[in-house]
Computed example of a mutant assay.
Amino acid sequence: MVKEHQRAFLTQNMSNILNHIEENPKETQRLIGLEYEQLQQLIENAERLNHEKQAILESKKVRIIAGGGGRKPKLSVKEQIILTLVYLRHMTTFQLLGIQFGVSESTANDIFNYWLPILRELLPSSLIEQVKKNESDLMIVKEILTEYELIVDSYEQVRERPGDKEEQEKYFSGKKSNHTFKSQMIIMPDGRDIVDVVAGEPGPKSDITMFRENRDNFDPKQNFKGDLGYLGEDLIDIPIKKPRNKELTTGQKKLNKEFSSKRIFVEHRIRSVKIFRVVQDRFRLNPKKYEQVILTICGLVRLRIGALILPTRIDPLASG
């Protein structure tokens, strides 16, 4: 009897979350990180991709029981996707997430790990990644990008302390006095799209080294704008450095202020990524998942700011 009451309570709690989104669509962005219409598009595309993957798996199975048999999932596909997004947005524990959605802690964990790679596949993290599968499109985009001075910056995120001593030394950042991952983001001058992302490098790696290791993603003529962390890289325009034991002139300070007003767009874009708590707080998941998580978040941000448009289902009756 107690278990039945508990199950009823959890199911009602889960329904309240879904009802809240349906009844208060304007609050979807605060809860999930996307506008209501964007969430619907994402769910539609994720369901389609999941159906395609399941169909492939079914075709390879040797069946003992009829298709459609077996235990039914406790949550619908829509509920499972929302659970995954809630974790990325708020990074609660899987125990609390399970209670919130009326499933066990392990089930909540399994759902998240099932849907994360599907969302990753649906949401290219950058413009470069979006077009890289087609060589001709990639070459055209690279050429067009040379007309702009792209903005580059990086940030560190604290991770759990590695168990291996060599890994501890590799990821220990003196700047943060902690073990960290470092990620690099390159954006359009006005911040309207994420052009390229590199995620999960060791925190101590210098900004300029990280940039040079990934420079081949762009045309050799591409120019960039960055901060003083890129001092020494000819391709990156940086602010005027204060001379040792001297002060900048009034004119130099004015130039640096103008420079900062243009470069601030990359800081805004990094901040929009950090709206998702899984990017902002200490990373508690398996460190091998870090790159996958960060690139998925960047894809969600591109969807949120309108740089990425997901296909919508066409009604054959309407088109006819």
Rank of each mutant, 00 (worst) to 15 (best):
residue 161 R to D: 09
residue 192 R to A: 10
residue 128 I to K: 10
residue 228 L to I: 09
residue 128 I to G: 14
residue 239 P to S: 04
residue 233 E to A: 14
residue 241 K to N: 00
residue 154 S to P: 13
residue 232 G to F: 03
residue 251 G to W: 02
residue 197 V to T: 14
residue 131 V to K: 15
residue 217 N to D: 05
residue 258 E to D: 14
residue 243 P to L: 08
residue 257 K to P: 01
residue 135 E to M: 13
residue 201 E to Y: 12
residue 185 M to P: 09
residue 239 P to G: 01
residue 228 L to T: 05
residue 167 E to Q: 13
residue 162 P to E: 02
residue 132 K to D: 11
residue 166 E to Y: 10
residue 257 K to A: 08
residue 225 K to Y: 04
residue 189 P to N: 07
residue 195 V to G: 02
residue 201 E to T: 07
residue 144 I to A: 09
residue 225 K to W: 05
residue 180 T to E: 00
residue 210 M to V: 01
residue 129 E to D: 12
residue 177 S to E: 14
residue 214 N to R: 12
residue 211 F to S: 03
residue 240 I to V: 08
residue 239 P to Y: 10
residue 177 S to K: 15
residue 144 I to N: 05
residue 200 G to A: 06
residue 192 R to Y: 15
residue 180 T to C: 06
residue 143 E to K: 12
residue 219 D to S: 15
residue 256 N to D: 05
residue 168 Q to I: 13
residue 230 Y to W: 04
residue 152 V to E: 01
residue 149 E to N: 06
residue 200 G to C: 03
residue 231 L to G: 00
residue 182 K to R: 06
residue 146 T to M: 04
residue 225 K to L: 07
residue 259 F to Q: 05
residue 127 L to K: 02
residue 139 M to G: 05
residue 242 K to E: 10
residue 174 G to L: 12
residue 155 Y to Q: 12
residue 203 G to F: 01
residue 200 G to F: 02
residue 180 T to Q: 00
residue 134 N to A: 04
residue 130 Q to F: 06
residue 142 K to Y: 12
residue 146 T to F: 07
residue 256 N to G: 00
residue 196 D to A: 06
residue 247 E to G: 02
residue 226 G to Y: 09
residue 148 Y to P: 04
residue 201 E to H: 00
residue 200 G to H: 05
residue 144 I to D: 04
residue 230 Y to A: 07
residue 225 K to R: 03
residue 152 V to C: 01
residue 246 K to D: 12
residue 249 T to S: 15
residue 147 E to D: 12
residue 175 K to L: 04
residue 219 D to N: 11
residue 194 I to A: 08
residue 247 E to H: 12
residue 196 D to E: 10
residue 228 L to Y: 04
residue 133 K to E: 15
residue 168 Q to Y: 11
residue 142 K to C: 14
residue 189 P to L: 09
residue 235 L to D: 12
residue 165 K to E: 15
residue 132 K to T: 11
residue 248 L to T: 08
residue 175 K to E: 00
residue 199 A to S: 09
residue 259 F to W: 04
residue 190 D to W: 02
residue 147 E to A: 12
residue 183 S to N: 09
residue 190 D to G: 15
residue 206 S to L: 02
residue 203 G to S: 00
residue 231 L to W: 11
residue 197 V to A: 13
residue 132 K to G: 09
residue 141 V to K: 05
residue 247 E to M: 05
residue 169 E to G: 10
residue 260 S to P: 01
residue 230 Y to C: 03
residue 244 R to W: 08
residue 233 E to H: 08
residue 220 P to R: 07
residue 149 E to F: 06
residue 167 E to L: 01
residue 221 K to T: 03
residue 243 P to R: 00
residue 257 K to F: 14
residue 256 N to F: 03
residue 203 G to H: 04
residue 218 F to K: 07
residue 188 M to D: 02
residue 180 T to V: 04
residue 158 V to D: 13
residue 156 E to Y: 05
residue 149 E to A: 10
residue 242 K to M: 06
residue 148 Y to M: 07
residue 198 V to Q: 11
residue 170 K to S: 08
residue 187 I to Y: 10
residue 245 N to M: 11
residue 250 T to S: 13
residue 205 K to H: 03
residue 163 G to D: 14
residue 197 V to G: 14
residue 135 E to R: 11
residue 146 T to L: 00
residue 136 S to T: 09
residue 165 K to R: 03
residue 181 F to P: 07
residue 159 R to I: 15
residue 227 D to C: 06
residue 154 S to F: 00
residue 173 S to D: 02
residue 199 A to K: 02
residue 189 P to H: 09
residue 253 K to D: 04
residue 256 N to Y: 08
residue 242 K to F: 07
